[in-house]
């Protein structure tokens, strides 16, 4: 499809300032690094919970509170929520228009995820100390 250029501003001028080319490589790289870290953490967590299915609060709270477990759970929380925020950002960028809404939705998602991550981390630390 061929169209005539009818404005003086070149396409690059319109793109500059709000297009892509911000921190794409870092974003992509961190998504890989966090997924590598999360793989053993998530498998450890899934089976740790599965073998304790049906256990009462005393057993579970004591399990979370053990120093080794508490540290791994806080790490899992931090890396997991970071990976999730970055992952959802890409989904939002792909499906939501216009750019203004993308920014608002991503800020809202990051705000909610930050609060949830802090709530989880604080709960784990409270049990552990």
């Amino acid at each position: 499809m061929i169209e005539q250029q009818t404005r003086l501003q070149p396409p690059l001028g319109r793109v500059r300032g709000f297009g892509s080319a911000k921190n794409g490589t870092h974003h992509w790289w961190m998504q890989r690094v966090t997924s590598i870290a999360l793989t053993p953490l998530m498998i450890w967590f899934a089976f740790s919970i599965a073998i304790r299915a049906g256990e009462p609060w005393e057993v579970m709270a004591e399990w979370i509170a053990r120093p080794f477990n508490a540290v791994l759970l806080v790490v899992l929380t931090a890396i997991g929520f970071y990976h999730t925020a970055q992952g959802l950002q890409v989904v939002v960028e792909d499906y939501i228009r216009p750019d203004r809404s993308v920014m608002v939705v991503n800020m809202a998602i990051k705000a909610v995820l930050t609060l949830l991550a802090l709530l989880a981390a604080l709960s784990i630390i409270r049990l552990a100390v």
């Binding site: 609060w57 949830l116 989880a120 709960s123 049990l127």
Partner: peptide, 13 residues
């Protein structure tokens, strides 16, 4: 993940 957060928060509560 909401259920994970609920789980640890409930355990702490």
């Amino acid at each position: 993940l909401i259920f994970f957060v609920w789980w640890v928060a409930a355990a702490a509560a």
